[in-house]
Amino acid sequence: MGKVKIYLGASSPAKTSEMKTGDWGTEWAKVDEDKCIACGRCITFCPEPCIEYVEKNDKKVARVDTDYCKGCWICFTVCPVDAIKMETKEIYKLEVC
C-alpha cells in the first residue's frame, strides 16, 4: 500500500462533489418537461444545488441530477405550475403483504 497523502495543515484542495447524496432519500424529484415553464424557482431554491436547465426539443427545461437529489421536496413546493413530481425510488417500492 502506498503512503497516505495528507495536505499541509489539514487544507483541502479544489472543490469536489464526490459525495453522491442522491441515495440519501426514498424519493427523487422529477420534472414534467411538458409542464415546465423554465421559471427557475426550483433552481433558485434547491439547497444542493442539483437542478439545472437543459435544452429539450428547442425548449429550456429544468432537470434534476439524481446523483445528488436528496428528495427534500423543496422544488416540489416552490414550483408554480406543478411540474415537479416526487417519485419513490424503485427499491423503496415495497409491497405490503
Binding site: S17, M19, T21, W24, E48, P49, C50, E52, Y68, K70
Partner: peptide, 18 residues
C-alpha cells in the same frame, strides 16, 4: 456535475430540506 455552475456544492452533507 461540472455543468451546474455552483460555488457551493452539490455533494455537501446538509439534511434534506436544510
Amino acid at each position: 456535475m461540472n455543468d451546474i455552475r455552483s460555488y457551493f456544492g452539490p455533494g455537501h452533507g446538509a439534511c434534506p430540506g436544510c
